[in-house]
Design a protein around this nucleic acid. Sequence first.
DNA 1: TATTATATCTCGGGT
DNA 2: ACCCGAGGTATAATA
Lengths: 258, 258
Amino acid sequence: MNKLLEVFRNSSLDDYAKLINESIVKREILVLIGKCSVDYTGRGESRLTDGDRVLIIKSDGSVQIHRPEGYKPVNWQPQTSVIEARVVDNKLVLTAIRDKPREILNVVFNEIYLLIRGRLTDNGEFVMYLNESDIRDLIYVNPWLIEDGLHIIGKEKDLGVGAVDLIGVDNKGKAVLIEVKRITASREAALQLYKYVEKYAKLTGAQPRGILVAPSFTTQALDTLKRLNLEYRELDLKKLWLLKKRNMGGKCGLDQLL
Amino acid sequence: MNKLLEVFRNSSLDDYAKLINESIVKREILVLIGKCSVDYTGRGESRLTDGDRVLIIKSDGSVQIHRPEGYKPVNWQPQTSVIEARVVDNKLVLTAIRDKPREILNVVFNEIYLLIRGRLTDNGEFVMYLNESDIRDLIYVNPWLIEDGLHIIGKEKDLGVGAVDLIGVDNKGKAVLIEVKRITASREAALQLYKYVEKYAKLTGAQPRGILVAPSFTTQALDTLKRLNLEYRELDLKKLWLLKKRNMGGKCGLDQLL
DNA sequence: TATTATATCTCGGGT
DNA sequence: ACCCGAGGTATAATA
């Protein structure tokens, strides 16, 4: 199994360059650890002076350069059309070019500590639960979560200024527009809902109710909602979660750890 | 120099667990390549079945799990309060826990191909050019970029509904609010500007001009601007860039490569 | 292709 | 600690 991965250290620069270029052609994964500086130009422009970093090239040509700290890479390239390694002035230079937008990443290695390359096989299935569309779907099926007597009649309805998450009719026959957020709703969310309410009123001539649904709200959001005559419902994610799990047979998580 | 990094393969599970826990205590960087499955729960919840991945733990306790493709990690933890490796049922289990928000990442390794650990030293300086604040500052100093006779009198002025990028006075003495975008301005950007214009009018009793400044505009943005009686200026980033470079002595880039 | 909205967004700066 | 807005955001969905 370990033939999967090759490890190199103390190789010559020319050998490193060759190893890298081979890996890219073979669409292997490549991890390069060493001291380097990085220049980037494209949508913006950045310079990073010498330091120890971990560089990863994946089989799709994406590149990321990680410093010893921080979740995010300091420099990167989501996908590239060209990646090339070569030796210039006794240094290993790696260039990754991307089109649309045209961007160039240039890495100069002053030292290479380690190179790992190999083919990884990953056919794993990834499932994400309880994203916004999950919540929307749950409310769609269980409108009582918002209020009794509510009938949902539409999902992701485009009003010409973007799509409102849910449209329904309350027990008095009045239209209800619902905007769903899975995290704390900010003022922006309230404004987004207002935009739909305004547009709907203009399109139909009838004033709808607007309800912002979220697990919590910033004070500014609440102010704005009040000012714009909009409603809100606090949503208990845990409750939704249980509802979802019940539908799935109760086996979708390790939340007992929480 | 290579004593910086240690490489292990074919070690026992217990040894791997020990190596990992040691690294975490010593705040080293750790790269683990192997076949694993991943469970995450916290703000959301996800499951990832078996496959080959690259796991990185950095000195700040951030964790990321990379599949062979894609720029982004499939699972991650920006920072963690606790990371622990242990052997359970003849498998290496790595748990990373984060508080606020409470989130748990659980990785079960069925095979470990390679473990690399070591201390990296990175004192490099990172500089980013031409982000939004750069553009704002350039306009601040060179208001003629927007129009002749404009005087900028404020930057990042908080109006109580967020801060407007720039405030100025035109050659007729009328207030001008400027919102800057470094990428194509969308309808949202127009609405953002409108929000400031409305608020300013309410605060002062005088109707200001509103100008959206961006390298380009979506058609919806232009529609919205027209409807809301707002203005816009197309901004040539390259021109700004040259302006900036001239100020810096002409040496801040490799854009000649573009 | 262009545009929009989401994201386990992350991250920094402000109050 | 909350809140807001930028991001080289990336990414998926949609027209």
